[in-house]
Amino acid sequence: MTPHLYRQNLWVGLGCLTIGVVFAANAWSSLEMGSPENMGPGFLPVAVSLLFAFLGMIIAIKGYREPPVEAPPMALWRPAVAAAAIILFGLMAERFGLVPTVAATALVASLALPRKPYQIVLNVAAVVAFCAIVFNRILGLSLPLF
């Protein structure tokens, strides 16, 4: 496989430029600007976002002139699974209680890692037991067990 070459700072700059423009537009359209002596809620948000976009432009130009670098290899499905585990926690916490939520979160998070099934089961069971005892019994977290 040939290494994937790309201009890193070009992408950084374009990202900053886009985010800056979107944020500036959002603040500009929804907030009062005021004046430098009497700043409204939108003054600094717009100023900072535009400056951010401007820096993004400079970084992009700089990045375009730089020679491309090799992209580090990345397996994106693993972090995606881990992030999904966190979101699952949010979805389940107030509907199902602590034990099922923690079990599901720990299980999904384990799937992001190279582990044997029995290791996963043991580890998840340990996490659940620990959370039930520490958060529910000792600290009195508001989530019920089930």
């Binding site: 881990a82 979160t105 720990a106 299980l107 998070a109 992001a112 890692l113 190279p114 996490v127």
Partner: peptide, 14 residues
């Protein structure tokens, strides 16, 4: 590390 990760993620969520 693979054993620790689920613990860290769960604690951070809680």
């Amino acid at each position: 590390y693979a054993t620790l990760v689920p613990w860290i993620i769960v604690f951070a969520c809680v």
